[in-house]
Write a protein that binds this DNA or RNA. Structure first.
Length: 345
DNA sequence: TATCTTGAGGTTGTTACTTCA
DNA sequence: GATGAAGTAACAACCTCAAGA
């Protein structure tokens, strides 16, 4: 849209001012990109090389993962790779994927260039270095995809009739899509030069490349969101079950309290228990056993029950099970997390 | 024919830059 | 010359539509 408008202005011959503006804009863009490169590029984030670790994707949750024992879904999946790339900015603006910068700069008049010129440019690219990937899309454009046999509509057909009000659906060829996919794996966002280079290489308009990347990012993110949602659902179910179990356990402990009222003379707050080692200590009995430890947030497994931090030999020798030999008594859940620090009671 | 995929248009918010008082 | 407001451009994100498989 913006490109088309700019090109239109250029085409109307307001050359001097517009070109100066464009130069300034380009300069500003370069500066901005250079800044981004400085900000993010120290680790080569999002550059043309391999992407860095994910920058987003619900970073609060992975910390929960080890506790829940649920693996985060497919961290190295393609969608994640894409998301990683999409969330890290700062490309090397001086590097084009496989076209020379000069070639990319020459493509600045991209929209005015006809199909023939684009084809010539594409074929004359000094380094169509997409490996074994077919890059001569200009030939396939007019005659349909060579291998697929599916004579998809030539996307260049829309170059001349952009003014038309009807929205035209143009399918990219398999080769074009595959090449865009490869580029997206490298970097999920494009700077103008990369966009131009890619457009030129694929014999597409830069706007088409831009739109393709926008849609790709959006749909990748959507897919990742669905995966994350599924995972969070599982986490929620696990936590709900855990909560239910703990509530039941708490109810049992309260029932034990009423069954053995002799123990009630102790202040409730002085009774502390380590859920993992099943030892009970009271502050009044062993004040040194619970030093003024920093108030650490109790884990879900010990919420409401103070845990003792002193060494077992300094605690009451009797275990919780020994104190209450009621049939109701049973060992605490074996998966209760050991609490090395006792919260201040 | 229904459904899904995907190219594309439009809107909004953000960021960076330039111009001007 | 420094500074802040206003204007502008580019872009990402999002929503939506619609063509085509």
């Amino acid at each position: 849209m913006a490109d088309a408008g700019r090109d239109l202005v250029l085409g109307l011959g307001m050359g001097v001012v517009v070109r100066r503006d464009e130069e300034e804009a380009e300069r500003g863009r370069r500066d901005r990109d250079a800044r981004r490169e400085l900000e993010f590029g120290t680790g080569r984030c999002g550059g043309w090389s391999s992407p860095e670790p994910p920058a987003v994707r619900l970073t609060l949750l992975p910390g929960l993962v080890p506790h829940l024992g649920l693996p985060w879904p497919s961290p190295s999946s393609e969608t994640n790779r894409h998301l990683e790339a999409s969330t890290t900015r700062g490309f090397d603006v001086n590097r084009a994927p496989s076209l020379s910068v000069a070639g990319a700069a020459a493509a600045a008049e991209e929209d005015e260039a006809g199909a023939a010129a684009a084809a010539a440019a594409a074929s004359s690219s000094p380094n169509n270095s997409a490996g074994s990937f077919p890059t001569d899309f200009s030939s396939a454009q007019g005659q349909g995809a060579p291998g697929g046999g599916a004579d998809r509509a030539c996307s260049r057909a829309s170059d001349d009739d952009d003014g038309g009000s009807a929205r035209k659906k143009l399918r990219l060829s398999k080769e074009q899509s595959a090449f865009l996919e490869e580029s997206f794996k490298e970097h999920a966002t494009l700077n103008p030069k990369q966009k131009l280079a890619l457009a030129k290489q694929l014999n597409l308009r830069p706007r088409q490349v831009e739109v393709w990347f926008q849609n790709r990012r959006a749909r990748t993110k959507l897919k990742q969101t669905e995966v994350d949602c599924e995972y969070l659902k599982r986490c929620c179910e696990t936590l709900t079950e855990e909560n239910r179990r703990l509530q039941k356990e708490l109810a049992e402990l309260r029932a034990l309290k009423t069954v053995h009222p002799f123990y009630m003379h102790l202040p409730a707050t002085t009774l502390s228990m380590c859920p993992s080692c099943e030892r009970v200590a009271s502050n009044s009995a062993a004040p040194a056993a619970a030093p003024a430890a920093p108030a650490s947030s109790p884990s879900p497994a010990t919420t409401g029950i103070a845990a003792a931090s002193a060494p077992p030999e300094q605690q009451r020798p009797s275990s919780f099970a020994a104190l209450f030999s009621s049939p109701l008594n049973r060992p605490l859940a074996s998966h209760a997390q050991p609490q090395p620090q006792a919260p201040t009671s």
